[in-house]
Structure formats: structure tokens, C-alpha cells
Design a protein around this nucleic acid. Structure first.
Lengths: 327, 327
DNA sequence: ATGAAAGCGCTAACAA
DNA sequence: TTGTTAGCGCTTTCAT
């Protein structure tokens, strides 16, 4: 099926059809409807993609943690069902790599991009908002030009997790979070501090320790150092899965029991293949990564124009409570 | 830069350039060289892709195990360096899904496909060999028309692993492998049996047990059942990582010590994030997944024609010996 | 906002 | 194997 044929059966000129396929908004609503109805009735949707976004690209730091892998699988489930070409690029948290990737697609106006930014630290966006439709995921950026955001409500989740720890008997909780370059780490810290304040606990800011979201050893080192320097704590909020692994190892070596000596909640799923082997009873704060993936992809496919209104979606965490939060 | 311009500066007609870009072999070597030299000298390689494969697609069951994830990362490292569009599709081991994906790309002659087949059980190939260039990975298929294969030498690796177990003192080794629908499972069984035969151990075929490569519980159940039914064994070759996890859990619950009561080697890396937390001293048979990924991608990008000669690459395993194989 | 018509860039047919 | 030429399909221009 060619434009000329569609023009013939719809009584609309080839030029108008051509315009419509490139940018639906450049054609009057009634004309568009006429052509679309014909496409639907004759089942020609496959020949002519009338959507604004005809393929999707995922730009993401890596696929090394379960959140990203679930996110990826969610996206795949949508693109595969809709027969949408799907590309993936890894930035390895490098802004330069990210810019290279964006520069290569700047002329592909039919490309929708699902983007997990490499870092929050940047002066400008790496793309032109008139070239690509972007669906931001997981890490927030403070630019006016980002219209679609799929974010985790880290602040509320962290606040609630801390509430649970304190209501579970913690008198002296701490948080071990990641670099403040990451909005996640920042927001999880802020939610923690909010709960601390609400419960009238003192020394809020002194309860915050900074590790590395990509390095278990940093969590391990922090716990070991605290104990060595006799800095007291009776409860830990681990701000991600990778830190939690190091923290748990340190607690084990120090023979501190969970939850009696130290209660704990961690962000992210600790479970994976090995959960079959190793029972773990650590309470988790889990964001619906798969759903975030399906939604961030679907919302791109629904776009009919570049002039999209702001669509900011905040996902709430699920709490998988297994007892480790209660003394 | 357009064909017309290249035609002008090279003194070759637009038609010939067009032909050359579509299939380099349709143009005389000297003419091709003349045009290619101009492209190189003027740095126009970016405008005209003179390769046969202009983009790469990975068709793979899933990304849930470390072998596939490493393979994926190897491929990504190549496509990203070469600025090659890269798509990925998951089949979830469904041949129907696989056929759908192939049918959608059958007219994209510039697409190179890296393919991990969903299953060995099939009557015909799901693609036309004149439409796409395929690089088969990990699972073998017995069709004449597959010219590029990147396979693991499962037979030799399994034979050597079994040799190590027996030389380490095993008198009564068994293998727990996967469904015979998978060439991996098949070949690992055959390598095991070869070693058994070479060492003049009896009852070869009775030493083989079949679990499910995707289900740890099957490995767990087999070990439990063997002990319950008092079927003796003093050594296990676990034919993949997922089975190994279940096997290890069963051995732990049965209080069978490794390697004294039962020596063991497993295929695939057991290490992952949790290796930081959980020390494991299990010997592993590991294929170079990352390298297989880079090679299977590179070999596609090097193709200059559809009439490619057979290129079958067999990768040897690395043995990460940690003592669990020696009694 | 639309259609007629010209234009663009690539490909296929054909002849040498 | 190559160039000429006609053609195809889509886009852009321009006039209304």
C-alpha cells in the first residue's frame, strides 16, 4: 500500500497524506479522521503508522540491577506487542556517551526516547525538544522542557520506611544513601530526614551517611567504620540494593542480629536467583519497575504531536515487609 | 551528501553507486575501490555505509542469566563503538514469537541478526537466508544454511569438568542437566558420558538426570529424591547455574559437605552481586560470554556479501577452580 | 488547509 | 560491468 493508493481511495491528495503522516497536527481534524477511518476499516494500520512515535529507544546507564532489568522487560513487553522497533543504548553513567547517542538521533523525529539520565549534574539538555519526544524515567532533572516524567516517589517512600523503622522500635536510626549527584539518593535522604523531624529525633543531618550506589563495599565500609568509632545506631535505612548487600555483610561479620540489634529496611528488591538458595528476611521498598517500563513506553506511543502537555507520573513504592523493620 | 554528488566527484554513475551500496559484490572490484578511496579520503564514511550489515538485531530468549547479560554487553560494546543501530527482542523460548520477529524483518536486507534460538526442535529455519545475515549464538541448529555460528564447546568442557571430578577423587559422579531440546544440555551430557567411558566407570547412562535449565527447584528436587531413594553419588556436575543453585540448597539442607561428601562443578558463573555477601567456593565452567558477544557482532559488521563462507567458531571454557571439585 | 505540480533521491530496466 | 534513462514514491512549493 502506497500513499498514492491511499490518496485514491480516500479522495485526499498525496501531498496531504504525506503531511499527515509526518505530523498529524498539520492537517485539519476532519480530514485526518476521514483518512484514519479508512485505514482502520480496511485494516491498513500496519502499512501506515499514523503515530508520532514510530520507534523507541532506551538510553540507560546499564542493565546491572534488578530495577533496570525489570524496567527493560516492561518496555520490551510493550514494543513487542505493538511491533515497534526498539533500540537500546547504555551510557555507563557517562554524560559524554549520552550526548553522543542523542546527537546521532537528533534528526529522527519519529523516535521516542525513554531516558534514564546518566547524572543530575548538567547545564543543559543533550537533545532538542523539537527533534525527539522524551520520556524521562527514574532520575529527575529540573528542566522546563521535559514534558513526560515517570518518577518514583522516593521522598514519600523513604519517609514511610523511616516511620516504619521508628514505629518498630528504632530510637537511633541512620540512613546510608548514595551520591547527591543522583536525585534518588537525594530524595531518599530528604524523606528520611522528614520522618526524623516528625518524630522529634535529634541530630537529623548526623544520621545521614553517603556511600556509592554502585559499590557494595562502600556500604560495608560505612557500617564497619561506625562500629569501630563507636558511633551508635540501632536501625538502618539502606537507600539501595547494592549498598544493602555490603551493609548486611558487615552486620553479619559484626555478629549484630537483625532486627534485635539493628533493624533494617532496604530500597530495591534483594531477591534474585539466589533468593531460592539464601533465605532472606529483609524488608524491602520496591518500586514497580516493570509497570514503569510499560507506562513510559505506552505513553510515548500514544503521543499524537510534539506539543504534548506535561505528564508527570509519580509511582508509589510497595513495601515488602518481612519483619526486619520491627525490633 | 547524496549519491548524485558522490557520482559527480567519483566519475561513476549514480546507478553504479546505488548498486554498490546495496550489494558491493555487484560492482567490479576496481570501481568499488575507486569509490571507497574517495569516501575514505574525504571522510564520508559516515554518509555512506558501504557495509552489507547496517544495523544489528539480537533475538534472544531473555536476559535473565549472567551468560546472556554478558553476551548482551559484549554486543552493545561493539555496536556502540561502531555507531550501529541496535535492536533487541526477547522470545521467551517461544518459537512462535521468534517467527513473528523474523517475519517482520524479512525485507530488511541491511539487518544482521544475532540469534540465540528459542529451541532446537524445529523443522525449518524461520527466515530466508537471502534476506538476512544470521549469526547463530550459543545454541546449535543443524541446518546447512547457517553460515555463521558462535558456539560454546560444551562437549569438551563437560568432558574436562568430569575428568577433573574423577581425578579429584570422585568414584560415583552424576550429571544433572537440562531438557534434551537444548543443544547445550545435550552436549554437556555427551561430554560427561565420554569422560565416564574413558575412566571405565560403569552405568554411564544411569548417571544422567534431567532437570530444567530455567528452574532451580528441579535441581533441588533431584538431589532430594536421590538421597531419599538411597541412590548413591559422591560428585555432581551441574549443567547450568540455575540448577546449581537448587542443588547447593539441597546439599546444604541434607548437611552434605562440599567437597568431602559431594564434590561439585557447575557450568556458568555463580557469582553475581551477592558473591560479595555470600562467599562461594564452587568451581565453575565459564564460557567467555562477553567475547562471544563482541565477536558475533563484529563478524556481522565485517560481512561484505550475502554469499559468505561458513564461519564456525567454537569457544573453549575457562575453568574457575576453587576446590569444590577435589575430594 | 488543501491540491496540482515540480522536485528529489534512489532504483530498476535496458542496452552496450 | 557499466551508464543512460525511465520510473517510483515521497516531499515541498506554490497558488488558492
Amino acid at each position: 500500500m502506497k500513499i498514492r493508493e491511499l490518496s485514491r481511495i480516500s479522495g485526499v491528495s498525496t501531498a496531504t497524506i504525506s503531511r499527515m503522516l509526518k505530523d498529524p497536527n498539520s492537517v485539519k481534524e476532519s480530514t485526518r479522521k476521514k483518512v484514519n477511518d479508512i485505514l482502520k476499516n480496511k485494516g491498513l494500520d500496519k502499512d501506515f503508522n499514523i503515530k508520532c512515535v514510530k520507534r523507541i529507544m532506551l538510553i540507560i546507564p546499564d542493565l546491572s540491577n534488578t530495577f533496570y532489568l525489570d524496567l527493560f522487560n516492561g518496555i520490551v513487553s510493550v514494543v513487542q506487542k505493538n511491533h515497534i522497533p526498539f533500540e537500546i543504548y547504555l551510557t555507563n553513567e557517562s554524560i559524554e556517551e549520552e550526548e553522543k547517542i542523542f546527537s546521532r538521533i537528533k534528526d529522527n523525529r519519529d523516535m521516542g526516547v525513554i531516558w534514564v539520565p546518566a547524572s543530575d549534574k548538567r547545564d543543559k539538555l543533550p537533545y532538542n525538544k523539537n527533534s525527539n519526544i522524551i520520556s524521562l524515567v527514574d532520575r529527575n532533572l529540573d528542566f522546563e522542557d521535559i514534558y513526560i516524567k515517570n518518577l518514583s516517589d522516593n521522598f514519600s517512600a523513604s519517609k514511610k520506611a523511616t516511620d516504619l523503622l521508628i514505629e518498630g522500635g528504632a530510637r537511633n536510626p541512620i540512613i546510608i544513601t548514595g551520591s547527591l549527584n543522583l536525585s534518588n539518593a537525594q530524595e531518599r535522604k530528604d524523606g528520611f530526614l522528614e520522618s526524623i523531624k516528625n518524630h522529634n529525633l535529634d541530630n537529623g543531618i548526623n544520621r545521614v551517611y553517603y556511600g556509592d550506589f554502585n559499590n557494595s563495599e562502600s556500604g560495608y565500609d560505612i557500617v564497619k567504620k561506625l562500629v569501630k568509632e563507636k558511633i551508635e545506631f540501632d536501625s538502618i535505612l539502606a537507600a539501595n540494593q547494592i549498598l544493602a548487600v555490603g551493609i548486611l555483610k558487615a552486620l553479619k561479620e559484626l555478629k549484630l542480629s537483625i532486627p534485635n540489634d539493628v533493624s533494617i529496611i532496604t530500597f530495591d528488591k534483594l531477591v534474585n536467583l539466589y533468593s531460592f538458595y539464601e533465605n532472606n528476611n529483609i524488608s524491602e521498598v520496591v518500586f514497580p519497575a516493570f509497570d514503569i517500563g510499560t507506562h513510559s513506553a505506552s505513553i510515548l506511543l500514544e503521543q499524537k504531536t510534539f506539543n504534548t502537555p506535561k505528564q508527570i507520573c509519580n509511582y508509589s513504592a510497595e513495601f515488602h515487609l518481612k519483619g526486619s523493620e520491627k525490633k
